[in-house]
């Protein structure tokens, strides 16, 4: 049995600035060196180490079909992320994974997909989107409707890709910000309000949500009200964790561990779990 705590070396090949409101969110493109590789599915995460500083969990942000590199979109907020933000292309970091469960991409086939993301919450959903957008996979899924929210126009991540996403067959992208801004010609308002204006085929839709806890709470409540079954409303959780493999005892919600039983949970599952997250 292999050591689950042993990371692989990866080179930071590109750093992409995401937000323009501040410089706090960047996307890190990483290539495994020394012949390393990591196959994953949408929803999974890694533990990234900067030796001497520590290790922290991050969801994959790139396509699982891309075997050349992986991407992680990371906000500067703690010790590891602070150190990471000071690294330049060419730097080496250490990564172990993939960990956690995945979005049920097979079960979701044949359904329409509603994606609602707030701010950095779009990052762990991007592997799912890129997976569904792939030529081989696009026909397996129905319409893909996206409602992407951010505080202000400068707070969106992957904004450079939205136009491309809009060109994909049966795919729509609606962007919204919290307050009106000069030059902003898309929607203004919170996603839980806007979602009731959307034309949703509740009988045949999987909803995938990620964002601030308050957004998840209001949006999922609204979606249940609209008639989407709780089993088909999915979200992905984050928790402080050390090991990522169900041993260290930090990320449990009741008897379930976010690192091995999650991070993807349905609202049906969450409604049965203690509200401690």
């Amino acid at each position: 049995m292999s050591n689950p705590y042993l990371p692989q070396k990866a080179e930071l090949v590109e750093v992409i600035q995401e937000t323009s409101s501040d410089l706090d969110i960047k996307t890190y493109r990483l290539k495994f060196t020394d012949g390393g590789k990591m196959d994953f599915m949408p929803g999974q995460f890694v533990e990234l180490s900067i030796p001497g500083v520590g290790e922290a969990p991050f969801g994959f942000a790139s396509s699982p079909l891309n075997k050349e590199y992986i991407e992680l979109s990371i906000k500067r907020v703690g010790l590891v992320t602070e150190a990471l933000h000071s690294l330049k292309a060419g730097s080496k970091v250490w990564i172990r994974g993939p960990f956690g469960n995945t979005f049920p991409v097979k079960e979701m086939e044949g359904s329409k997909i509603l994606v609602i993301a707030g701010g950095l919450g779009l990052a762990p959903l991007r592997p799912l989107l890129l997976y569904m957008f792939d030529e081989q996979n696009r026909s397996k899924y129905g319409d893909i409707q996206m409602l992407l929210a951010a505080r202000g126009s400068g707070d969106f991540i992957y904004r450079r890709e939205f136009e491309e996403w809009r060109k994909i067959d049966r795919t729509s992208v609606t962007c919204t910000i919290d307050r009106p801004e000069e030059g902003w010609d898309e929607r203004v308002g919170f996603p839980h309000v806007l979602v009731s204006e959307m034309d949703i085929d509740t009988a045949n839709t999987y909803a995938v949500l990620c964002g601030p806890p308050i957004m998840i709470k209001f949006v999922s409540g609204k979606l249940v009200e609209l008639g989407i079954p709780k089993e088909k409303i999915l979200t992905t959780l984050e928790m402080r964790m050390t090991c990522g493999v169900g041993k260290c005892g930090k990320c449990n919600i009741g008897h379930q561990y976010v690192c091995i039983d999650g991070p993807v949970f349905s609202m049906a599952q969450l409604s049965q779990m203690p509200g401690e997250y």
């Binding site: 705590y5 030796p51 001497g52 520590g54 290790e55 090991c243 041993k247 260290c248 005892g249 930090k250």
Partner: peptide, 14 residues
């Protein structure tokens, strides 16, 4: 049995 990882730098090694 709960645990946490800690890195210590000694003589240039972590």
């Amino acid at each position: 049995h709960c645990f946490v990882f800690k890195d210590v730098v000694e003589k240039g090694e972590a």
